[in-house]
Structure formats: structure tokens, C-alpha cells
């Protein structure tokens, strides 16, 4: 029961069904579920923006333009030179949004990869070997899930110190529990397949069963989870920045741009809304994609 705490609705339920071959249904799924395209395009767009951020951006994101502030020190509204306006230090918001895309995506992706790695490994071990190994790992998972995630990450970042890599390490190291649960469930299901039993009976080595049979079978749900996790971790980074312990300034992340924009949104709304829009759309992209992929990997839903 508690395992569903942080799982986007019903994920485990739908994931619990043994996947079958789906290539023939692929097209049908996409037709039935067009949002996956939209999500995919949004993510692709984000990735391109992030990868080529420094090629696209018109200015150095950390350069403080002397003409980027009004005489009274107010940031400038969007105009021809600064298409998304400037911030309180006269830096170009557009360039910073692009630089932020890189950092935010970096945090989201690396954190998710770390969780993916830890979660999958522990989930497989737990599900495949069972018995006391399973009990121990599942207890640890329970412990991880009991903690309030944000505060837990805050505590760990305080220990590690404030930097981009520490932020994604903390998010990753503390965020694997759901993955472990799902993978374990999947492994348990796959383990009961006749051909797995047969392979075992024929004396196939564990590693062979793991890599040839189990891994391919859990790939679908894990991809879904990871896709959703990237979005969630990008949001978590913004929350950390709001709390003052995210990516350290002057480096731009959408999180700390939002946190700065928040304070001045009444007279410099562009400082809040552009990074806010960028973050929301990107996370939405990952959520749509993940949600769509879940349908895709769940053959029962396509009739």
C-alpha cells in the first residue's frame, strides 16, 4: 500500500501486468494516445535547446550589462535587445533561461539516472533472490519512502554542500525507492514465467537469465518511471532553490531564476514568468511522454 505513495496514479497497477510483444500495437497506441507525440516533441525541443544552449543564446548569461538596468536599478522589460528582459543585475533573461535549461535538464537527467541505477539494481536483486535479501532491501525501501522527500534532500544537500552535482546526487540517492519497488514487482512476475522456470531448470546461469530475460522485460516500466522522474527532479531542483539551497548563484537554473523572480514579480513579471513557463512546459513534456509511454507499454489498455 505504502508503495504507491509517490507513484503517479495507478502506475504500479498498470505496470504489474506482464508485458507482451507490442510492436504491432505501437501505431494503434499512438493513434489512440496522441499526447505522447506532443510530450515527445516538447522533450525533444527541450533537449535541443539545452544541448545547443550556448550556441543559441545571444549573450553570456552571467554578463551584467551596464545598460541592462534602468537608472533606478529596475530590471528592463522585454525589448529588441533583451527579448525576455533583464534581471536585477542587468543580465539577459533569455540567455539565462537557455543556460538554465542546461542546468535543469542536467539535474533532472543525472538525478534520475542515479535513482534508476540504484533502484533497478536493488529491485532486481530483491525480486530475483528473494528471501532475506528481499526483506532487507524492502525494509530499506520502506525507510526511504517514509521520509518527507524535500526535507530529506535538504538535509543531505546541507551535508554535501551546495553545488549542481550535489543537488542531483542528493536527489538521485534519495529518490530510488519507487523504482526499486516497481522493478521488484516486475521481476517477481517475470520470474514465474514458464520459460524462466525452464531456463533455470536447464541450469542457465543467473546472470544470463538476468540480462537476457529479466532486463528486457522490465525495461518498459523503468523507462516510464525514469521519464516521469526527470520531470519531478527538475521540479525538486526548483523547490530546493526556493528554499535557498539549490544551484548556487550566479549559475542560472530555472529553479533559482524562479526563486529570484518570485520576489520581484509585481514589477518585473518577466523574471518569473519566462523561467516559470519554461520549467512548467518542460516538466509537462516529460509527464506527457511518460504517461503516454506507460499506455504504450501496457497492452491491456489498448483494445
Amino acid at each position: 500500500m505504502s508503495q504507491m505513495m509517490t507513484t503517479p496514479g495507478g502506475l504500479e497497477q498498470t505496470l504489474a501486468y506482464p508485458p507482451k510483444k507490442q510492436s504491432s500495437k505501437f501505431v494503434r497506441v499512438l493513434k489512440a494516445y496522441p499526447l505522447v507525440f506532443i510530450g515527445g516533441i516538447m522533450v525533444l525541443f527541450l533537449v535541443i535547446m539545452a544541448v545547443f544552449a550556448y550556441k543559441i543564446m545571444p549573450y553570456n548569461p552571467n554578463y551584467q550589462f551596464p545598460n541592462g538596468l534602468a537608472m533606478n536599478g529596475a530590471p528592463l522589460a522585454p525589448d529588441k535587445q533583451f527579448i525576455m528582459g533583464t534581471d536585477e543585475l542587468g543580465r539577459d533573461v533569455f540567455s539565462r533561461v537557455l543556460a538554465g535549461a542546461q542546468i535543469s535538464l542536467e539535474v533532472g537527467v543525472f538525478a534520475s539516472i542515479i535513482s534508476l541505477f540504484i533502484g533497478t539494481t536493488l529491485g532486481i536483486i530483491s525480486g530475483y533472490f528473494g528471501k532475506w535479501v528481499d526483506t532487507i532491501i524492502m525494509r530499506i525501501t520502506d525507510i526511504m519512502l517514509a521520509f518527507p522527500f524535500v526535507l530529506f534532500v535538504v538535509a543531505l544537500v546541507s551535508v554535501l554542500g551546495q553545488s549542481v552535482s550535489n543537488v542531483f546526487i542528493a536527489l538521485g540517492v534519495l529518490g530510488w525507492a519507487v523504482t526499486a519497488r516497481v522493478v521488484r514487482g516486475q521481476v517477481l512476475a517475470v520470474r514465474e514465467f514458464e520459460y524462466v522456470q525452464a531456463a533455470k531448470a536447464l541450469g542457465a546461469p543467473n546472470w544470463r537469465i538476468l540480462f537476457k530475460i529479466i532486463l528486457p522485460n522490465i525495461a518498459g516500466p523503468v523507462i516510464v518511471l525514469t521519464t516521469l522522474a526527470i520531470g519531478n527532479n527538475m521540479l525538486a531542483e526548483s523547490t530546493l532553490s526556493y528554499l535557498g539551497i539549490g544551484v548556487a548563484p550566479p549559475q542560472a537554473s530555472w529553479g533559482n531564476m524562479l526563486a529570484e523572480g518570485q520576489q520581484v514579480f509585481q514589477y518585473a513579471p518577466w523574471m518569473l514568468y519566462y523561467p516559470g513557463l519554461a520549467l512548467t512546459l518542460s516538466v509537462l513534456g516529460f509527464n506527457l511522454l511518460g504517461d503516454g509511454l506507460r499506455e504504450l507499454f501496457n497492452p491491456r489498455r489498448v483494445r
Binding site: Q64, P66, M71, G73, L89
Partner: peptide, 9 residues
């Protein structure tokens, strides 16, 4: 002068 401008004078 720049630091003063940042604190809105």
C-alpha cells in the same frame, strides 16, 4: 556606482 544602482540607489 553600479553596486548602488543594484540596490535601487
Amino acid at each position: 556606482e553600479e553596486l548602488l544602482r543594484i540596490v535601487n540607489g
